[in-house]
Simulated assay, not measured.
Amino acid sequence: MAATGGLMFGYDIGISGGVTSMPSFLKEFFPTVYKKIHEPGLAESNYCKYDNKGLQLFTSSLYLAALTATMFASTSTRKIGRRITMLIAGIFFIVGTVLNAAATNLAMLIVGRLLLGCGVGFANQAVPVFLSEIAPTRIRAALDILFQLNVTIGILFANIINYFTAQIKVVDTPNSLIERSHLDEGKKVLKKIRGIDNVEPEFNELVEASEMAKEVKHPFRNLLMRKNRPSLVIAILLQVFQQLTGSNAIMFYAPVFFNTLGFAGDTSLYSAVITGAVNVLSTIVSISLVDKLGRRILLLEAGVQMLISQLVIAVVLGLEASRNNC
């Protein structure tokens, strides 16, 4: 249930690329782009036709808001708990969705996207922490990937939340409850999620870890200590290089990419669906293998696969761009 926090993130990635290739959407909110695409006699290529600052603002505003919201979500996750932070993300998603659905001009559309971005920032901060802390050790890696699985499902589908999910009560993690001195409640939740009554060893470890964490007066300063720098640098660079590959841009603009390569309107959307389906299936394969092979093996394999795929995409798009002289 908690992992479904990734659905809206994936939905926002998948839906934007689709609507920006739809004539009705462009005509309503980006008439200049619509005119370039549909006005007869214009010799511009599709690359040039989609070059519009308003359209770029529409797509990037979500990520700008997500980046900013993450700064606040870090404190929220620590101070008021993972569960409350996820609920805050849900509120942002609901308000942003309603505003976007009711949008009559570009300003309302941008504000809605900003609110959705805040939801992304809070969800992406709290959900992975929640999953890693609540999961049994033997399947922790697989459960962590459930968030990514939901992101890929969100890219593939625009799901409506079922009414009955409101009847499911989501508890906070034992770690978060213990951090906030709710020891009895933390032990109760630990018994519930482990399915056994004898949780004393794990509970005592959590309490001890919480006490040790409270003794750290300057956590960010300690993070920068020499002994912690290698792990810190690796963690940061992994995320940086993942973004620099441009894979998100390809998923985000998939229908537009296929359109620029000569696919017709419906065919470009259909091709994007195939890409999204492969994305989901690949994530399912990762879930089944990560606890057996380990994170490092999958990371190295994915890096090689990504390199080859991106080189092919770069060559194809480069040839197309040079041919259009855009």
Rank of each mutant, 00 (worst) to 15 (best):
A2W: 03
L7W: 06
L7G: 06
G10F: 09
Y11E: 10
Y11L: 13
D12T: 13
D12E: 07
G14D: 06
V19E: 05
M22L: 15
P23Q: 04
F29H: 10
P31E: 10
K36D: 03
I37F: 00
A43Y: 04
Y50H: 10
S60L: 11
Y63S: 11
T77N: 06
I80M: 01
R82Y: 03
I84M: 11
L87N: 08
I88N: 03
I91V: 15
N100L: 12
A103Y: 02
A107F: 11
M108P: 03
I110V: 14
L114C: 10
A126C: 11
V127Y: 02
F130Q: 04
E133L: 09
I134S: 14
A135F: 04
T137C: 09
T137R: 13
R140A: 15
A142R: 14
Q148N: 06
Q148Y: 01
L149Q: 07
I153L: 15
L156E: 12
F157I: 15
A158R: 06
I161V: 14
F164V: 11
F164D: 14
P174C: 03
D184F: 11
K187W: 01
V189N: 04
E200R: 07
E205V: 12
E208T: 12
E211G: 13
A213K: 12
E215T: 15
V216W: 06
K217E: 13
R221A: 15
L223F: 14
L223T: 14
M225R: 14
N228Q: 09
I234W: 05
A235Q: 01
L238W: 02
F241V: 15
L244P: 10
I250N: 02
M251E: 03
P255W: 05
N259K: 15
N259Y: 13
N259M: 13
T260R: 05
A264Y: 03
A277P: 03
V280G: 11
S286F: 15
I287Y: 00
K292C: 04
K292L: 07
R295K: 09
E301I: 15
E301H: 12
Q305R: 12
I308T: 05
I308M: 11
Q310R: 10
L311N: 10
G318E: 02
L319T: 06
L319V: 10
S322Y: 06
R323I: 01
N324R: 09
N325I: 07
